[in-house]
């Protein structure tokens, strides 16, 4: 991966000036490259990774992993049914996977009822959906490479040779 992308993937708040210093490129070159990535869709969005467990008002926020078995369709394979499913705003991620089922969804809702309703009334009755298995998330330990607990603080002495 390009170095600029690598730096931004780790921390989206690093400024072009700082990236320029880190990489030995000029500020203009960095800005230009970022703009290009944004326009071409390589950089999709800048988001903040929040540990919702620590935010009180979002305690009712639930997330489920749903395994979906579907019947692929002639000519379009899985794409068509996948599109019909991922277009629901409740579906935050949708992957086609190998193994005993076909689509793996991550679905979010305000509470268990809302997610269950979505499954019962929208997802399961859908034509070509053969079955679902729902796993509600109980606890998050690690997400996108980040361990979701208080950071391991350095135990180094503040000065040494």
């Amino acid at each position: 991966m390009d170095e600029i992308l690598d730096i931004l993937a780790g921390d989206a708040r690093v400024t072009p000036v700082e990236i320029a210093k880190m990489t030995g490129k000029s500020k203009d070159a960095v800005q230009k490259a970022i703009k290009k990535y944004e326009q071409s869709g390589v950089i999709v969005q800048y988001k903040t990774l929040i540990n919702h467990d620590l935010v009180r008002e979002s305690n009712s926020f639930v997330r489920a992993l749903i395994e979906v078995s579907v019947t692929p369709q002639k000519d379009v394979g899985f794409d068509h049914i996948a599109e019909r499913i991922y277009s629901f705003p409740e579906v935050v991620s949708c992957y086609l996977v190998s193994g005993t089922y076909d689509l793996l969804l991550i679905v979010e809702g305000e509470n268990i009822q809302k997610v269950s309703n979505f499954i019962a009334s929208k997802l399961s009755p859908m034509e070509n959906v053969r079955g679902t298995a729902t796993h509600f998330l109980l606890k998050k330990y690690k997400e996108d490479g980040h361990v979701l607990k208080q950071k391991e603080t350095s135990k180094r002495l503040n000065i040494s040779y």
């Binding site: 391991e152 000065i159 040779y161």
Partner: peptide, 22 residues
């Protein structure tokens, strides 16, 4: 000087001779 540093709290240290990774 080392003792002074080690006795002080909330210091940003650029004085460490070891990596900052665990």
């Amino acid at each position: 000087f080392f003792d002074l540093v080690l006795g002080m709290k909330d210091v940003i240290s650029l004085g460490v001779g070891e990596p900052d990774f665990v």
